[in-house]
Simulated assay, not measured.
Amino acid sequence: MSFESDKRFNDFKHFPRGLRRSGEFTVAEADSLEKYGTAMLAIYQGNLAPRDEVETAFAEQLKAGEAGSNPHAKVWFKYLKVIGPKRVHRLCTVAGGASDDAGGSFDGGGGSAGGGDESLD
């Protein structure tokens, strides 16, 4: 049988409440990861050589970077995408080098109208 492992796969670093309760995976995907994830991780890291044609196809698809129709590769790529770095989309822009100073500047000015050093007594 493909992807045999004695140990169930859990990633408590990224999913402290477990794969099923993360909300990122369907029940079938979470089952697949829990059942075969340890062997998938070992093949992905190169610690385990593929033992049959299903594992060999999985390793080839990992090298190619596409899942194709292999359900094991699809769920593994989804796992990698979920644990990967998050993209942050900001709704504001930074005016780098704008010619007009409409909003004030951050040049370290005193902020007072007199412009000199004023001491408080």
Rank of each mutant, 00 (worst) to 15 (best):
A73I: 03
G84K: 05
G108M: 01
T56C: 00
K78S: 08
G104M: 05
D107R: 13
V94K: 06
E60D: 13
Y79P: 01
A102T: 10
A59E: 10
Q61S: 01
K74I: 05
G108S: 06
E60T: 03
D101S: 09
S99A: 15
G111H: 08
H72N: 15
A59V: 05
K81C: 00
S112M: 05
L62T: 04
A98N: 10
G96D: 09
V82N: 03
A102Q: 09
E55D: 06
G103K: 11
A64S: 15
V54S: 02
G104V: 06
G104L: 07
A95L: 12
Q61Y: 01
F77L: 14
K63E: 12
E60F: 01
D101M: 11
G103V: 12
G84Q: 07
S99I: 15
P85Y: 04
K81A: 12
I83E: 07
G103Y: 14
T56E: 10
G97R: 14
S112A: 10
A64K: 15
S105W: 06
G108A: 07
L80Q: 11
K86N: 12
W76T: 07
G104W: 04
G68V: 03
F58E: 05
E53M: 04
I83D: 09
S105I: 03
W76K: 09
H89A: 11
C92S: 14
I83T: 15
V82I: 15
W76H: 02
G110F: 07
D107M: 13
T93L: 13
R90Y: 11
K81H: 07
G109P: 00
T93F: 10
A73S: 13
D107Y: 07
S105A: 13
F77A: 03
L80M: 06
G97L: 14
V94M: 10
T93D: 09
Q61V: 03
E66A: 07
A59G: 01
V94E: 13
G110Q: 08
L62I: 06
H72G: 08
G84N: 03
A64I: 01
